[in-house]
């Protein structure tokens, strides 16, 4: 697993990466009630705001962790945003991305570095 400073996790799945948000993030956000996912096939750039998530109280954005193409999105999550709260590392995944520049992955954190970040 790799992590971003924006509290996303990335898990390799063949030549694509599955992306979600960490338990720390969902705890901070509270109960999610709405998720808007990107279009499958979209080309995105690192730091583009590609997902909108809303908790009962507030809206926030999730940014693309790397440049790449969106290969799949979790439609179950759009139907039931609470999956991100109940199973953030599993059924609560957001999208899969095929990186166009795998060297960008080197700049991401490993689990130890992420745990140090969130204290």
């Amino acid at each position: 697993m790799k992590y971003t400073e924006e509290h996303e996790w990335l898990r390799a799945d063949g030549d694509v990466y599955v992306v979600g948000i960490t338990e720390h993030a969902t705890t901070q956000l509270g109960d999610l009630v709405f998720v808007e996912l990107p279009d499958v096939g979209a080309s995105v750039s690192k730091d583009d705001e590609i997902v909108v998530i809303e908790s009962v109280k507030a809206a926030s954005d999730i940014m693309a962790p790397v440049d790449g193409e969106i290969t799949e999105v979790n439609t179950d999550l759009a139907d039931d945003p609470s999956l991100a709260n109940s199973d953030p590392l599993g059924k609560g995944w957001f999208f899969k991305i095929k990186p166009s520049d795998t060297s960008q992955l080197d700049g991401l954190m490993d689990e130890a570095a992420y745990n140090a970040l969130i204290g």
Partner: peptide
């Protein structure tokens, strides 16, 4: 306090 352990949804 904006919320307690239950969270906004369950508190509501």
């Amino acid at each position: 306090p904006v919320q307690y352990g239950l969270g906004v949804m369950k508190e509501h």
